[in-house]
Amino acid sequence: MEKEKLIKLLFDGKIDDATRDDCAIYLAKFIDDDVVATLINVANDLKNEEMIRASCGESLAEIWIEMNKIDYDVLNSLEEPARTEVLGYFKHNKPEWYLEYEKRY
């Protein structure tokens, strides 16, 4: 599925949560700043189900690792459970980023 369609479905509150969650997961395949911004936006919208916000966090972690670029302030500003998902992913896949986050915050 194309990136634009996944983003549109992820933002569509009329779509069932399982489909929106799948969209968040699939977006990890698209390594770009638009997807990062989308995932942050959805992860920080407390109207979204926790499952969706958590998947946004995991996808965001995957993309940051693939880009080899992280913004610790953005990470720290993520709402739960997205932040926990990012940190858990880093702990197992990029431990130096996890330890850096722990030092800073």
Rank of each mutant, 00 (worst) to 15 (best):
7 I>Y: 07
53 R>Y: 09
81 P>A: 12
6 L>E: 02
3 K>H: 05
2 E>R: 09
37 A>D: 12
80 E>P: 07
91 K>M: 13
65 I>Y: 08
21 D>L: 03
28 A>L: 06
25 I>T: 06
23 C>P: 05
100 E>L: 05
11 F>K: 15
101 Y>A: 10
71 D>A: 01
83 R>V: 09
3 K>Y: 01
64 W>I: 01
81 P>Q: 02
90 F>T: 00
80 E>Y: 15
96 E>S: 15
81 P>Y: 03
12 D>S: 06
10 L>T: 04
65 I>F: 10
57 G>Q: 01
44 N>W: 08
38 T>C: 14
54 A>Y: 14
82 A>G: 11
36 V>F: 05
75 L>W: 04
24 A>C: 07
59 S>K: 06
27 L>T: 04
80 E>M: 14
5 K>N: 13
96 E>N: 15
83 R>T: 06
71 D>M: 07
104 R>D: 03
78 L>R: 00
29 K>H: 10
56 C>K: 06
71 D>C: 07
30 F>R: 02
71 D>H: 01
19 T>I: 11
23 C>A: 00
73 D>P: 06
78 L>K: 10
46 L>M: 12
15 I>P: 09
60 L>H: 05
2 E>D: 15
58 E>H: 05
91 K>D: 14
86 V>L: 14
79 E>I: 07
87 L>S: 10
19 T>Y: 03
27 L>I: 05
98 Y>H: 14
66 E>D: 15
95 P>T: 04
101 Y>L: 04
40 I>L: 14
97 W>L: 09
28 A>N: 08
77 S>A: 09
9 L>C: 00
29 K>A: 08
63 I>L: 08
90 F>K: 04
69 K>L: 13
10 L>I: 06
46 L>V: 00
87 L>N: 08
52 I>C: 05
32 D>M: 09
66 E>G: 01
82 A>T: 10
75 L>M: 12
61 A>P: 01
11 F>I: 04
58 E>D: 05
87 L>H: 13
31 I>K: 04
22 D>K: 00
27 L>H: 01
25 I>D: 10
36 V>K: 12
33 D>M: 09
15 I>D: 11
76 N>F: 13
97 W>G: 03
81 P>W: 06
34 D>Q: 04
3 K>V: 01
2 E>G: 05
80 E>H: 14
72 Y>I: 12
90 F>E: 00
65 I>C: 08
67 M>T: 14
83 R>L: 14
54 A>E: 13
38 T>Y: 02
44 N>A: 00
17 D>E: 11
